[in-house]
Design a binder for these strands. Structure first.
Length: 873
DNA sequence: GCGGACTGCTTACCT
DNA sequence: ACAGGTAAGCAGTCCGCG
C-alpha cells in the first residue's frame, strides 16, 4: 500500500503539481533530522477539541515516518450556535453576560423546511462548553435564547463541516497550512464512470465524482500495536474493577505491525523463578516494580500512532490509567485520558475492536453474522480461526510461563483481527471514516445512524443549509398515515407474498438491486421534499400514503444516498470482482463496496428511527410504500407476461421456469415504468416451499444449498439436531431432478431414523443436546414471564455462577419443575427424550412435509420399541 | 383442579 | 438505538366443566 500512484497537490495559489517523494525509498533520504519526512503526505485520522488551546486539534499520520503530526487550527474558527434574528434586547444582554460569549454575527442560511432564506443570529463563543456544556441549561448560552439551532453538535464535528475537512484523506502541511492533496484518478476510470452516469443531472454527477474522489484516493498502511493486560484478582473469576484499579497489573502483552511481540511480567513472591528460555520470537521482560512496568507500557503506547485493544475503552486503558494514578504517577506522565465511556491516548489514536465488532451493522453486513457473540475468543475464532488460550486455572494462579502464553495470545489475536484479509478491518474503518466524515475513533465507537447523521450534517453546512431542529421536523411533517401489520410499529412495511408450497424445479429469483436506496433516489425522497411546502407539489402523491413529494427541488438525502447507491452497484461491486485489476485494488474496492452496503442498508431505516436527528416518519413510510407498490406492480406484470410467481419478499420475486425473453421483458418494463433495475439475482435448480413465509430451501445448479429461516439452521437448535438437519439438506443438494426425489426420500428417512435411535439410546453428548439461547437482559428484568433459558440462568446463579446480560445460555430439557437444567449442571441421563423427540419432529417436518414424509411414519419403523419406550415414561 | 384456546413475551430470523 | 414482517415455543390467563 505504500507505493502509490500520483497525487495532485491542491494548493489554491499554485497550479496543480504532482507530488514527489511519497514512496518510501531510502529512509535516510526521506527523513529529515527531526524525524519528519520531507514533503510529507499525512493522512488525517482524528479531530478533537483542545481545551487549553481552545482550538481544534487534528492528528495527522505520516505513513513514511509512522509518526503523528499534530496540527492546531490557525484559521480562527470558534464554536457557535444559531438563534433567531433579531434577538430581543434582553436576550442579547443575557447572552453577552455569559463569560464564554465572544460576539454576535448576522448570517443568512437556506431553511430547507420552508424552502426560503432565513436571517439568523450566530452566537460565537470562546469555548464549546459555554454553548451547551453546563449541567443546567440556564447557564448555557443556548439556554438564554428562545430557540437555538446547531447547538448540540460536537465542536470538532462542527469544525470539520465548516472547513470541509476530509477525514481519512491525505493532506500536506505548508507553512502551517493544512492543504488537501488530491489524488489524480486514472483518466480512463473517470471516463468509464462518466459514461455510466451520463443520463443523470449535472447536480447528481457532482455527487458521484465527489464520492469517487474520496474513495479512489490511496490508502496508507497503519503502524500499530495491540495491547492486552492481565490483572491480579484475589477472588478467582471476578474481573477487577477498572475504576478502582486496586489490584496489581501482573502482565501486559504487545504485538505490533513490525512483527514484534513483547510480554511484560511483574515478578511476584508467590511464584517460582522462571525456568528455561522464553518462547521463540517473544521478548519477555520481568519487572520487580509494577510502576516501572507500567511506565514501560506507557512508553510503548506513546510510540505508536495507533493502539488496538479489545475492550480497552472499558478495561485495559482505563485500568492502566487509574492504576497509574493509584501508584502516584503524575498526571502528565500518563499518556491516557479517560471519559465516562471512552479511553483515549494523548499521542496516537485508540481503536477498541470490541466496540467495532459489537456494532450491529458491522456484524450483519460486513461480517455476515460470522461470529455469534462479541467475545474476543468467539470473534477471533470465527474470523481468523484462532481463539484465546483456554485457562486451566484462574489467571492469578498461573505460573509465569502459562501466564506468558495466555496473555500474548490475546494480544496476537487482537492484532490479527486488524490484519487478516489484507488489513480488512483497518481499511473498513478508514473507508467508513471517509464516507461518514467522522474521525476513525468515532467510526468504531458510534452506530450507523451517527455516521449517516454526520455525513448529512456536513452536507448541510457545505450548502449553507440550516440544520433543522428535530422538534420542528416532527411538528411540521407529522406522523405516519399507514397502519403496521405488527402491533406497536409506526407504519406499514414490506410485503411478503404467500409461497406456493411444494418442490419447484428451475427457479429464478429476480430482485431490485438495493431497493430502498433506489426508491429514495428515484422518488426524490428526503425530509425536506416529502410534504414540501409548495402547493403545486401536492399532486405528486406517493402511492399508498397521504404524502406527496417535491417537484421543484432535489432532496438532499435523495442525492447523497442515490449517488452512493449507484457507485456501489455500478462501480465498486463489479470492480471488486474484476480480475483484470490488481488484487490490492480489488481488495480495496471490496472494502468500499462493503462499507457502502453497511451505510445503504441503514439509510432508509434511520428516517423511521427516533434516535436519528433527521427522523422523519413520512420519509420512511413513503419508502416502504413505494417498495410495496413496486413489488405488487411487478407481480402483476409478471402474471400478465405468463410468468408464474411462487414467492416474494420485499424486493424479490421467485419465478418458475421462464424464458430469457420473458425475464428480459419484465426487466425492461421495470426500468421503464418503475425506473428501477430488476435483475436475476440467483438461479436455483429447485426450491422447496412450505406454507411458511421467510422459510425455504433453494438448491443451486452446483449443489450448494440456501437454507432460509428453517429452525434447523437457527442458533438455538441443539447441535445434534442441526447436524441431522444438515445431513438431510446435503442429501437434498444432490437431487438433480424430480425423478431423484424418491431415492433421496429413502436416504433421508434413514438419516432421520438413525439420528432418532441415537437420541433414544442417549448416545449423543450432553453438549450436542444443548439449546443455546441469548439472554438479552439481566435476570431481574424478566418480570412478565420467565422463559426457559432464564430459568436455566437462575439455576446457574443459584449454584454460584454469575450470569450476565448478553450471555448465551446453554441448557438441556429435563423432567423437573423448571423443565430445564443448565448444561453445566446436567447429565445426559436426565435429558427428557420425549421433549427432544417432539422438538426433532417439529424441526425436521419443516422439510419432510414438503416432500411427503411423515416423521411419525419413520419412527413407525420401530413401532414396538416406541410403544415400550413411551410406556416407560 | 385440569386442559384447551387464547394472548403475550421472547428470541431468532428474512428483506 | 436503522426499519418492519414472520415463525416458533413457552408462560400465563381465561373459561368451561356437575
Amino acid at each position: 500500500m505504500k507505493s502509490l500512484e500520483s497525487f495532485i497537490f491542491l494548493d489554491e495559489t499554485k497550479d496543480k503539481e504532482t507530488l514527489e517523494g511519497f514512496e518510501r525509498k531510502d529512509e535516510t533520504d526521506t527523513f529529515s533530522k527531526k524525524g519528519k519526512t520531507q514533503n510529507a503526505v499525512y493522512y488525517l485520522i482524528s479531530a478533537e477539541y483542545d481545551g487549553q488551546r481552545r482550538a481544534a486539534r487534528l492528528k495527522l499520520y505520516d505513513p513514511i515516518s509512522d509518526k503523528i503530526e499534530v496540527w492546531y487550527d490557525n484559521t480562527d474558527h470558534h464554536p457557535y450556535c444559531l438563534a433567531p434574528w433579531p434577538l430581543s434586547d434582553s436576550d442579547r444582554k443575557n447572552v453577552e453576560k455569559h463569560s464564554g460569549f465572544k460576539n454576535f454575527e448576522k448570517v443568512t442560511k437556506y431553511d430547507p423546511l420552508f424552502d426560503r432564506e432565513v436571517d439568523l443570529t450566530k452566537i460565537v463563543a470562546k469555548d464549546p462548553r459555554s454553548i451547551g456544556g453546563s449541567s443546567s441549561e440556564n447557564e448555557n448560552i443556548r439556554g438564554k435564547v428562545p430557540k437555538s439551532w446547531e447547538a448540540r453538535i460536537k465542536y470538532y464535528n462542527c469544525y470539520i463541516y465548516d472547513r470541509q475537512i476530509q477525514m481519512g484523506m491525505p493532506y500536506k502541511l505548508l507553512n502551517d497550512h493544512l492543504i488537501p492533496v488530491k489524488y489524480q484518478s486514472l483518466e480512463e476510470d473517470r471516463q468509464r464512470l462518466k459514461a455510466l452516469v451520463k443520463k443523470e443531472d449535472p447536480e447528481y454527477k457532482e455527487y458521484i465524482f465527489k464520492w469517487f474522489q474520496l474513495l479512489e484516493s490511496p490508502i496508507p498502511g497503519f503502524r500499530r500495536v495491540a495491547l492486552d493486560i492481565e490483572v491480579y484478582s484475589p477472588v478467582s473469576n471476578r474481573v477487577p474493577d477498572p475504576n478502582e484499579a486496586e489490584e496489581k497489573v501482573i502482565a501486559a502483552s504487545l504485538v505490533n505491525s513490525d512483527g514484534q511481540k513483547k510480554v511484560l511480567i511483574l515478578k511476584r513472591e508467590e511464584l517460582d523463578e522462571e525456568q528455561g528460555p522464553a518462547p521463540a520470537g517473544l521478548d519477555v521482560v520481568f519487572y520487580d516494580q509494577e510502576e516501572k512496568m507500567i511506565r514501560e507500557i506507557f512508553k510503548i503506547l506513546s510510540e505508536f500512532p495507533i493502539v488496538v485493544t479489545y475492550n480497552g475503552d472499558e478495561f485495559d486503558l482505563r485500568y492502566l490509567y487509574n492504576r497509574a494514578k493509584n501508584l502516584k504517577i503524575p498526571q502528565d506522565q500518563i499518556p491516557i485520558h479517560i471519559t465516562h465511556r471512552y479511553s483515549s491516548l494523548n499521542y496516537g489514536i485508540h481503536i477498541d475492536l470490541y466496540r467495532f465488532f459489537f456494532n450491529r451493522s458491522i456484524w450483519i453486513y460486513a461480517f455476515s453474522k460470522k461470529y455469534t457473540n462479541n467475545t474476543l475468543d468467539n470473534v477471533a475464532q470465527s474470523l481468523i480461526g484462532k481463539g484465546k488460550i483456554e485457562l486451566t486455572a484462574p489467571i492469578s494462579e498461573l505460573d509465569y510461563s502459562e501466564l506468558i502464553k495466555y496473555t500474548i495470545r490475546d494480544a496476537e489475536i487482537t492484532f490479527q483481527l486488524t490484519s487478516f484479509d489484507d488489513e480488512l478491518v483497518m481499511k473498513l474503518i478508514l473507508a467508513l471514516s471517509r464516507i461518514s466524515k467522522l474521525p476513525l475513533e468515532d467510526v468504531t465507537r458510534q452506530g450507523v445512524s451517527r455516521w449517516i447523521q454526520n455525513l448529512m450534517f456536513a452536507e448541510h453546512r457545505r450548502l449553507n443549509w440550516l440544520i433543522p431542529r428535530s422538534e420542528d421536523l416532527s411538528e411540521l411533517k407529522g406522523t405516519s398515515s399507514t397502519e403496521s401489520v405488527i402491533d406497536g410499529k409506526k407504519y406499514r412495511g414490506a410485503i411478503v407474498v404467500d409461497p406456493k408450497p411444494g418442490t419447484h424445479f428451475n427457479i429464478s429469483v429476480l430482485d431490485f438491486a438495493s431497493l430502498y436506496p433506489s426508491i429514495i433516489k428515484q422518488w426524490n425522497l428526503s425530509y425536506e421534499t416529502v410534504r414540501c411546502p409548495h402547493d403545486e407539489c401536492k399532486k405528486q402523491t406517493i402511492p399508498g400514503t397521504s404524502h406527496w413529494v417535491c417537484k421543484r427541488n432535489k432532496g438532499i438525502s435523495s442525492l447523497l444516498i442515490g449517488s452512493l447507491r449507484d457507485l456501489r452497484v455500478k462501480w465498486y461491486k463489479p470492480r471488486s470482482k474484476n480480475t483484470n485489476l490488481s488484487s490490492s485494488k480489488r481488495s480495496w474496492y471490496n472494502v468500499i463496496q462493503q462499507s457502502l452496503k453497511v451505510i445503504l442498508n441503514a439509510s432508509y431505516g434511520v428516517f423511521g428511527s427516533s434516535v436519528f436527528s433527521l427522523y422523519c416518519l413520512p420519509v420512511a413510510e413513503s419508502t416502504a410504500a413505494v417498495g410495496r407498490y413496486a413489488i405488487t406492480k411487478t407481480i402483476d406484470k409478471a402474471n400478465s407476461l405468463g410468468i408464474e410467481v411462487l414467492y416474494g419478499d420485499t424486493d424479490s420475486i421467485f419465478i418458475k421456469s421462464s424464458t430469457k425473453q420473458q425475464i428480459n421483458e419484465l426487466s425492461k418494463w421495470s426500468a421503464n415504468s418503475l425506473g428501477m433495475e430488476l435483475e436475476v439475482d440467483k438461479v436455483y435448480r429447485y426450491v422447496m416451499f412450505s406454507l411458511r413465509k421467510k422459510n425455504y430451501l433453494g438448491v443451486y445448479s452446483d449443489g450448494r444449498v440456501d437454507v432460509k429461516g428453517l429452525t434447523g439452521k437457527k442458533r438455538h437448535t441443539p447441535p445434534f439436531l442441526k447436524k441431522t438437519f444438515q445431513e438431510v439438506v446435503d442429501t437434498l443438494g444432490e437431487v438433480m431432478s424430480q425423478d431423484e426425489v424418491e431415492s433421496a426420500k429413502r436416504k433421508i428417512k434413514n438419516i432421520v431414523y438413525s439420528s432418532y435411535i441415537k437420541l433414544k439410546k442417549r448416545e449423543y453428548l450432553l453438549e450436542e443436546l444443548a439449546f443455546k439461547i441469548m439472554m438479552n437482559k439481566p435476570i431481574e428484568h424478566y418480570r412478565k414471564t420467565t422463559p426457559q433459558h432464564v430459568k436455566a440462568a437462575m439455576q446457574l446463579k443459584e449454584a454460584g455462577n454469575e450470569v450476565k446480560s448478553g450471555e448465551l445460555i446453554s441448557f438441556i430439557k429435563v423432567n423437573n419443575s423448571d423443565g430445564v437444567k443448565p448444561l453445566q449442571l446436567a447429565s445426559v441421563e436426565e435429558a427428557d427424550l420425549k421433549k427432544y423427540v417432539s422438538y426433532m419432529k417439529a424441526t425436521l417436518e419443516q422439510i419432510l412435509n414438503v416432500i411427503g414424509i411423515e416423521f411419525d411414519e419413520i419412527l413407525g419403523l420401530t413401532k414396538l420399541e416406541t410403544f415400550l419406550w413411551n410406556d416407560e415414561q
